[in-house]
C-alpha cells in the first residue's frame, strides 16, 4: 500500500465529466477529500450519476474528464481498487482463476500466490475457489467479484452498490470486512441506494444531486441533526398522496398505535425511518407488521 498517513488518501478537485456526444456535463466541479481510514458514502437517486462518479474518478469511462484526481502521495494504479456495480467475472473460469488474472496483472509474480490465498480467506471463498463462477449464486458471485477487485490490497477502494444480491448473512460478513478495512486505514468510497448501507459501511455522508457532490458531514453529525422520525406515505380518502411524519418511538410501535396516529381511511403505502433505524418487522398483520425501531442514541 502507498503511504497515505501523511496526507489525504484520495483527493478529487474540480472534477467535471462529460459523456461523449453530449453538451452538458454529467458531473460538475466535484470535490472529494478522503483521509486514510475514512469511508465516504455516496447517496443519490437513480440516474444521479453515482456509478459515473466512481468511473470518472477511477478513469474507467469514455468521455471528457477535467480536474485532478490524486491517490495518496505518488500513488499508482495499484493503490486503487474498483468493484463495479455489475459483477465482472469470467463465468467459465473458477473463482481462483479469476482472482489469479487480476493478481498477475497487478502484483509481482512472487506475491501472487499469497495474495490469492489471503483474499480467498478474507472473503471466506475457500470452499468455492475451484468452482466455475457460472455455478455460483448471485451473492457468491458478488463476493468473488469483490475479491478479484481488491486482491492487490489497494489503499483506496471504490465499491459501487456492493450489497446488491447479498443475503442477510453475507451482507453482515461484508460489513465486517469493510469495517476492518477502515480500521486498518484503508480509504473507501461506497455508493448506495439505501441509507442503511451507508450507515453500516461508512463514516461520512455525501449526496450526489444536480450533477455535483455535497458533503453532508460525518455520519454522527448527520444523524444528530434532527429528531428521529417515522415518515409514513399513503393515500387519503380524497385520493391524494400524503406524507405524514410521526415521532419515532423509543422501542416498538404496533399496528394499532400507528393506525390511530393516521387520518381515518388513510391507505398506507410505505413506512420509512429517518434519523433512526428500522431494526425489524414483527407481528402477524398480513399487510403491515409491527415496527420495531432501534432506540435513538
Amino acid at each position: 500500500m502507498t503511504n497515505v498517513a501523511e496526507g489525504p488518501a484520495l483527493t478529487v478537485e474540480h472534477l467535471t465529466f462529460t459523456y461523449p456526444n453530449t453538451a452538458s456535463p454529467q458531473l460538475e466541479d466535484v470535490n472529494l477529500r478522503l483521509m486514510a481510514g475514512a469511508a465516504a458514502g455516496v447517496l443519490g437517486a437513480n440516474g444521479a450519476g453515482k456509478s459515473t462518479l466512481l468511473r470518472a474518478i477511477t478513469g474507467t469511462v469514455a468521455g471528457a474528464t477535467v480536474g485532478r484526481v490524486e491517490v495518496g502521495i505518488g500513488g499508482t494504479t495499484r493503490d486503487i481498487g474498483f468493484a463495479t456495480q455489475d459483477v465482472a467475472l469470467y463465468p467459465t473460469l473458477t473463482v481462483a482463476e479469476n482472482i489469479e488474472q487480476s493478481a498477475s496483472l497487478l502484483l509481482h509474480r512472487s506475491a501472487v500466490a499469497s495474495a490469492i490465498e489471503g483474499i480467498i480467506n478474507e472473503f471466506r471463498l475457500d470452499h468455492l475457489a475451484d468452482r466455475p463462477c457460472h455455478e455460483l449464486s448471485g451473492g457468491q458471485r458478488r463476493l468473488a467479484h469483490l475479491a478479484v477487485s481488491f486482491v492487490h490490497a489497494p489503499a483506496v477502494r471504490f465499491l459501487d452498490e456492493p450489497t446488491t444480491a447479498l443475503d442477510f448473512e453475507t451482507r453482515a460478513n461484508l460489513i465486517k470486512i469493510v469495517r476492518r478495512w477502515v480500521a486498518e486505514g484503508i480509504a473507501i468510497v461506497v455508493t448506495a441506494h439505501y441509507p442503511e448501507d451507508i450507515e453500516d459501511l461508512c463514516t461520512e455522508l455525501h449526496l450526489l444531486g444536480d450533477h455535483t457532490l455535497r458533503r453532508l458531514g460525518s455520519l454522527r453529525e448527520v444523524q444528530g441533526r434532527g429528531q428521529p422520525v417515522i415518515v409514513v406515505t399513503g393515500r387519503t380518502t380524497a385520493g391524494e398522496v400524503e406524507e405524514i411524519t410521526l415521532p419515532a418511538p423509543n422501542d416498538a410501535i404496533d399496528v394499532e398505535t400507528l393506525r390511530d396516529a393516521l387520518p381515518p381511511g388513510f391507505a398506507l403505502h410505505s413506512v420509512e425511518p429517518r434519523g433512526t433505524r428500522l431494526r425489524d418487522l414483527l407481528g402477524d398483520d398480513p399487510t403491515l407488521r409491527s415496527l420495531l425501531v432501534e432506540e435513538p442514541a
Binding site: T58, T65, E70, I80, S104, L105
Partner: peptide, 29 residues
C-alpha cells in the same frame, strides 16, 4: 487531466502471460 494514479502494469511478457492463460482456459472450455 492531471492523474497520478495511472501506471502501466509491469511488463509486456507478464501481461501477455496473465491474459493469455485466462484466454487459453476459456477457449479450451
Amino acid at each position: 487531466m492531471n492523474r497520478t494514479t495511472r501506471q502501466p502494469a509491469d511488463s509486456v511478457l507478464g501481461t501477455a502471460q496473465a491474459i493469455g492463460r485466462s484466454e487459453a482456459r476459456i477457449l479450451w472450455r
